[in-house]
Design a protein around this nucleic acid. Structure first.
Lengths: 205, 205
DNA sequence: GTCTATACACCGATAGAC
DNA sequence: GTCTATCGGTGTATAGAC
């Protein structure tokens, strides 16, 4: 017999079903693309009918919203862990941050589209789902400041440089490295621009 | 009485109808976004029923395809004209090329999404529609080479830098200049990287 | 609360009459 | 070439069984 009151058991079951739904949606998104997710297939995948999903989510966009928040929360956790073991030289550390972001992004193209591009026509993330992504930016800002990168414009620039390479790599040559391999060069340009000390990254790679 | 045979008059009328369709689609895309284009509204806008559109285009994606080709053809023409009057110093010339691309892109966000992002889930441009965009890249490559930028990787980098700023500007703050105003700085970084002579662009702006 | 059955409005696309 | 009618698909709403 459980020591938990019924309320908690029900809430637990409810949360488990919500995650089943979100997991099924991710599976379809990874297999056939983000736009291929349909409520009927999500429901069928977990042995339900599509209207039943409305007991757990207000709309299809609410499912995208949960996926958005979940993925940014995951990246936030990954990032915290990764920032604890950055290389010492600032220039190397900035490259490591960028490479970590690249690895996370390239691991799941559908996820990158949801998080970093506006790939779903009618979808705008809610305040709650947006929160962890704001936290990611804040943490990035703090870490970069600690490395000697001050100023919002510099952080904007860093993200624009990374995104510029990532977008083109994933759009034109997913799985390749034509844009990817320019990352050390770009980080070097950035480090020179903002005045980070240290030798060139490209020479050693 | 026309001197043209009937065949040509019919072809002319047919082409006019095709352009009416494409123009209507652009109007909807500019007003409500690229994804908001529906065959029923396009047809209604020119006094037709939606199935009639299939006499002129094989599918909805074929309309997007025509829009894609038309817009790249327009940019190619703009570009040719603009390249005839570039400033003398290579660094200034590269900035002028980027600024021209920015102006074209910012003038129509829906057009930018169609041309430079993969905003329509099931749509891939045909060989024919893709051709003018290939020509644009070729012309850009030739012009940059004439300015001292050699190597495919350098052209890739130039486009990634421009796209990185443009994507974020249009996605996060359309109409603003938070990312836009970093263009001279970025072009300076690029010019330094590829070894273009001349004084910094930022100091003069 | 959770799920099903049914239905609605809209979409892109097709068939066939004129 | 354009029409009407219709098809299979979608997201979504609601009534009601359990």
């Amino acid at each position: 017999m459980s020591v938990l009151p019924n309320r908690d058991r029900q809430a637990e079951r409810r949360e488990a079903t919500r995650r089943e739904i979100v997991d099924a949606a991710w599976e379809i998104a990874r297999r056939d693309g983000l736009a291929a997710v349909t409520l009927r297939e999500v429901a069928a995948m977990i042995g339900m009918r599509s209207p039943s999903l409305y007991s757990h989510f207000d709309s299809k966009n609410a499912i995208y919203d949960a996926m958005f928040g979940q993925a940014w929360t995951l990246y936030l956790a990954d990032m915290r862990e990764h920032h604890a073991r950055l290389p010492e030289p600032p220039r190397e550390a900035v490259l490591a941050i960028a490479e970590h972001f690249f690895a996370f992004s390239l691991a799941d193209a559908a996820r990158y589209q949801l998080l970093n591009q506006h790939a779903i026509p009618g979808f705008t993330p809610s305040e709650a789902a947006y929160a962890p992504s704001v936290e990611v930016i804040g943490l990035l800002q703090d870490t970069l400041r600690g490395l000697g990168v001050t100023g919002t414009a510099d952080v904007d620039l860093f993200l624009a440089l990374c995104g510029g390479l990532l977008d083109r790599q994933l759009a034109n040559e997913p799985g390749g490295d034509r844009w990817l391999r320019q990352l050390p060069r770009v980080i070097d340009m950035f480090a020179d621009e903002v005045g980070l000390p240290g030798p060139s990254l490209r020479s050693s790679r």
